[in-house]
């Protein structure tokens, strides 16, 4: 196992040296670029196609409502002066939208943290602790992966009604966590299984309790898996509509708030566009922030 993060400066250095050693000329490099050219063109085309709707949404969110109804969003490219941030200003003046944004953050962050904590604890137990019925229990957890969330909506609805969890952030957090757990436990357990047993035995002999091993060794070493799980879960919860629609009335996340702005006749596009873009930009930021934890070779140097 070698640390092989592509941005590693040493790696780049080594490549430069390699080039010097082999005496590769500039011409050869240009030649290689052409050889790989078709592939690059294809990738660029796919990326552009993929980005067009997002870009259109962004441009639309900058247009005054009067313009949107009259022309297509692409006109703004020719007339950049049309663009304005007024829509965003109005968005943040809109009490409902701001409230729902806060609600979304509460649900997504709360649920992500809760899920990561429970899934990694359970993952550790399934991977490394011995207790009766462990394997049967794990199979049951895996089996839960195939249960579609929709089947639970009505039973949980009546449960929430009777327990007072209906229309609360906590209710939504618990529901998302429950349905994220099978996958979360599965992911964490498999990752933890890859951590060499010797490390934990060594810590045990060094005097560490199970909890300490978990906090001091497993969590830091499990960061790549934890980051993946956190991103998955955050995105899933952030983009959820059906669960929030079912269990919320006044507790509305952003998706529901945007949804409620659509009308049968006409639309509040000047509100929907910036709100949608905002709802898209935040998970993207979270992804970029957590991405640096996807480090390969985390365990390098521990065992031979």
């Amino acid at each position: 196992m070698e640390a092989s993060a592509p941005t590693h400066p040493a790696g780049r250095f080594a490549r430069t040296r390699e080039r010097e050693r082999t005496g590769e000329s500039r011409l050869a490099r240009v030649g290689r670029l052409f050889a790989r050219g078709p592939l690059h063109v294809l990738l660029i085309v796919i990326a552009v196609l993929w980005l067009v709707p997002t870009f259109a949404l962004f441009v639309t969110s900058l247009l005054p409502p009067s313009e949107i109804t009259q022309t297509g969003w692409w006109h703004v490219i020719a007339h950049p002066s049309l663009a304005t941030f007024d829509n965003y200003k109005h968005l943040f003046d809109n009490h409902d939208i701001v409230t729902s944004l806060v609600t979304t953050v509460e649900i997504a962050v709360g649920n992500t943290i809760l899920l990561v904590v429970v899934a990694s604890l359970a993952g550790y137990a399934f991977a490394w602790m011995r207790f009766p019925g462990r394997d049967v229990l794990f199979v049951i957890v895996i089996a839960l992966l195939v249960v579609p969330l929709q089947t639970a909506l009505i039973p949980i609805f009546s449960l929430y009604q009777s327990t007072g969890l209906f229309d609360t952030v906590l209710g939504l957090v618990l529901f998302h966590t429950a349905f994220g757990l099978p996958f979360g436990i599965f992911l964490m357990r498999n990752f933890f299984m890859g951590i060499p047993k010797d490390i934990m035995e060594s810590a045990r002999i060094d005097g560490a309790s199970e909890l300490r091993i978990f906090v001091k060794l497993i969590l830091p070493l499990g960061l790549p898996a934890i980051a993946s799980l956190a991103i998955f879960q955050f995105l899933w919860t952030w983009n959820d509509l059906i669960v929030a629609l079912t269990f919320g009335r006044n507790t509305q996340p952003l998706t529901v708030a945007i949804f409620s702005q659509t009308r049968q006749f006409g639309s509040n596009i000047e509100l929907i566009a910036p709100a949608s873009f905002l709802s898209l930009a935040i998970p993207l930021a979270v992804f970029l922030a957590l991405q640096r934890y996807f480090v390969q070779g985390m365990l390098a140097g521990s065992v031979k």
């Binding site: 060499p196 010797d198 490390i199 035995e201 060594s202 810590a203 045990r204 002999i205 060094d206 005097g207 560490a208 309790s209 001091k216 060794l217 830091p220 070493l221 985390m298 365990l299 390098a300 140097g301 521990s302 065992v303 031979k304």
Partner: peptide, 29 residues
Amino acid sequence: PSRDRDIAMVFQSYALYPHLSVYENIAFG
């Protein structure tokens, strides 16, 4: 339990803590 036996073990694989520096590896116990 192992942690109360007051023994130290050197593993064939060394089993170092990969995320800790040499100093922290030694100081861990």
